[in-house]
């Protein structure tokens, strides 16, 4: 069980969820509309918050996250089932891959294990996740604008 502090919820979980959904839409070359993404973000953050309250082993909530994100893509962001499946796997995969590379490096430098990270103060726990979110935000923005540029020159 991991009760997510409100600071982490607002400054980490919501941006993270927003990025998961925006990235999923970007790789499917879809237009990003703020309102539906925000709605899906709030629902998936609420679902993730509840899932973390359950006494599940570490890692299971990630699978629940894939399922929630799949449902958000399918029902709120209106992707077809195939696109929703690929987008949810790729988005969550990129998040965990970036965590594996960037967060692991920070943990190595600070000499912290993952359980130590979870036990940090709410603000520390939030800030330690920002570097990989920043890299991901940059990647999503780059891909989105690259797609828009390609669209513009193909017309």
């Amino acid at each position: 069980m991991d009760k997510v502090p409100i600071v982490t919820l607002i400054f980490y979980s919501i941006p993270e969820s927003f990025l998961i959904l925006s990235f999923g839409l970007t790789i499917q070359k879809k237009k990003l509309s703020f309102s539906p993404i925000l709605l899906a973000t709030l629902i998936s953050v609420a679902a993730s918050y509840c899932a973390r309250l359950l006494p599940l082993p570490y890692g299971i909530h990630t699978f629940l996250g894939v399922l929630t994100v799949f449902l958000m893509f399918l029902f709120i962001l209106r992707l077809d089932p195939k696109q929703s499946l690929v987008s949810s796997i790729v988005s969550i995969g990129v998040l965990v891959a970036l965590e594996s590379v960037i967060l692991s490096y920070i943990q190595f430098q600070l000499g912290l294990g993952l359980q130590d990270v979870m036990a940090l103060s709410p603000w520390q726990k939030t800030i330690i996740g920002w570097p990989h979110l920043a890299v991901w935000a940059g990647l999503t923005t780059y891909l989105y604008h690259k797609h828009k540029f390609n669209q513009a020159i193909s017309q």
Binding site: P57, T62, G93, A97, S104, Q107, F108, G111, G113, L114
Partner: peptide, 19 residues
């Protein structure tokens, strides 16, 4: 990926090999 993160979590240490 998830398996590696779970291992990392239960080991609760990040040495060079883990990294």
């Amino acid at each position: 990926l998830i398996g590696t993160r779970a291992l990392n979590y239960y080991n609760n240490q990040t040495n060079l090999m883990d990294l």
